[in-house]
Design a protein around this nucleic acid. Structure first.
Lengths: 257, 257
DNA sequence: AGGAATTTGTCCGTATGTATA
DNA sequence: TTATACATACGGACAAATTCC
């Protein structure tokens, strides 16, 4: 069919984003005050000469950002002026992970090849198990003072076994080493944080009583092809808080150079 | 046109939710391992005999929950199996905080003014204690199924006491309400994640045995002048994993060709 | 380097269901 | 009960990003 608007009318962004921006501006400017209903989807299709799908896509984003609340049979209500909704995650980058490894020291306790049982496989790469992986275990220490920080287990694909001696000596995070020796770059890191009991054996290495709990950080470093490394860190619950800051950022839209 | 599937084939839920549930189960069961691509939208339309829009709606929800990552030209990649936890929070911005509050509801148990002891004051606003704050306690529930998600305590400056009735009725996160009724916008949010014992009284409200542990999320919403609200969420350790994506570069501000 | 194939993104139009007033 | 407004669902077309040859 025909896309009645030329691909770009001086604005490169998708149609729904443009509409979203206009609506958002009306909300922040007070044209659509907090607490009121904005025009219906049908009315907006008429104003912007767009299909209902496109309008809904714009409204969906406004809803996700917390500016409006949509209810069947009622309409779309403004619930926030927008001042508080433009936040983005800040300071959670790989650089931050490098930082940690420069002020600490990792002592390898063991490195061996194991076959993943189903439960573990689900955590390591989400598979149903059976494959063999290298597991490197150790304790991370502070350089200053020499106190234990956390117990670490890293799961690495078995094909890196020839480099295992090199890995154990490597200063810096394992993922950096593996990325260098792999064809494909890490595209994404996913972190999962849980409260789990500290395994008794790990507790011993950290100088803790058995039966204590831990804050467990699981990080999965993923290339476009596979999980390159999955790392578990068990931190003593009494000494670890994971702190993150979410800063306000002015702009989330892209510009046209 | 014809809606080839009868409105309900023993399952009242919308089609896209059923499909989402099936895909989610395959992910958690390991049929679609982490790091791999799931079938394309087209293939899924064939398997489920649904339109591409319906498939996309299902995938959209999986993406919002942080289980998959979708990329143009690539496909849909599993990035987290979500194993072992019913409730997850993928929290890349405040948007998703709103998302949570739209799929759940908050039942207020009490609201009272208390004087902060030094330890608590340190957590609430970093002061040494003595000031009076309002503390609103309650439980967050799933709309679907009606199961308890977490116990919540929110600390609010005492001067908002006149609005407390309004706050208790407010749909949506408290910080949005407070920001509206305050002169100054929220400038940053600090979040702290800890593993702490679940207080016995809270455990009772969540249907847990005393002595269990929790993943505690503390969020402090800060304006240029003060801490506007500090909120503690205690999640059952067995059902909560905090999932987050970490950017490769950490900077999405600037364009680098 | 360049072009084809693949996959998700965007957009159109229509029809029907469901919650609310 | 009726009207309204959003929710769900269908199907088709082209755009844009990526990969592969």
């Amino acid at each position: 069919m025909d896309n009645r608007t030329p691909p770009n009318s001086l604005d490169e962004r998708p149609r729904y984003m443009q509409i979203q921006a206009v609506l958002e501006e009306r909300i922040t400017a007070g044209a659509y005050p907090v607490g009121t209903l904005i025009p219906t989807e049908i009315e907006l299709t008429q104003e912007f000469v767009a299909s209902r799908s496109t309008i809904r896509e714009a409204l969906r984003h406004l809803s996700n950002r917390g500016l409006v609340d949509r209810k069947q049979g009622i309409g779309t209500r403004v619930i926030s002026s927008g001042a508080g909704s433009r936040y983005q995650q800040a300071f959670t980058s790989l650089e931050e992970l490098f930082q940690v490894s420069s002020e600490t020291y990792f002592a390898v306790l063991s490195a061996e090849v194991i076959s993943l049982d189903p439960d573990l496989a689900l955590q390591v790469d989400g598979s149903s198990g059976g494959q063999e992986w290298i597991v490197v275990s150790g304790v991370r220490w502070t350089k200053e003072g020499g106190r234990p920080i956390c117990y670490v287990q890293s799961y690495i694909p078995k094909r890196f076994w020839p480099q295992i001696a090199e890995i154990k000596e490597y200063q810096g995070p394992f993922f950096a080493f593996l990325e260098q020796h792999s064809r494909t770059p890490i595209e994404e890191v996913v972190q999962e944080i849980r409260a789990v009991p500290m395994p008794p054996d790990f507790a011993r290495h950290l100088g803790l009583r058995p039966g204590s709990w831990s804050l467990q950080l699981l990080r999965r470093y993923i290339t476009s092809k596979e999980v390159l490394i999955t790392s578990f860190n068990w931190h003593p619950s009494s000494e670890m808080a994971y702190v993150m800051k979410i800063d306000r950022t002015g702009r989330s839209d892209r510009d046209a150079p």
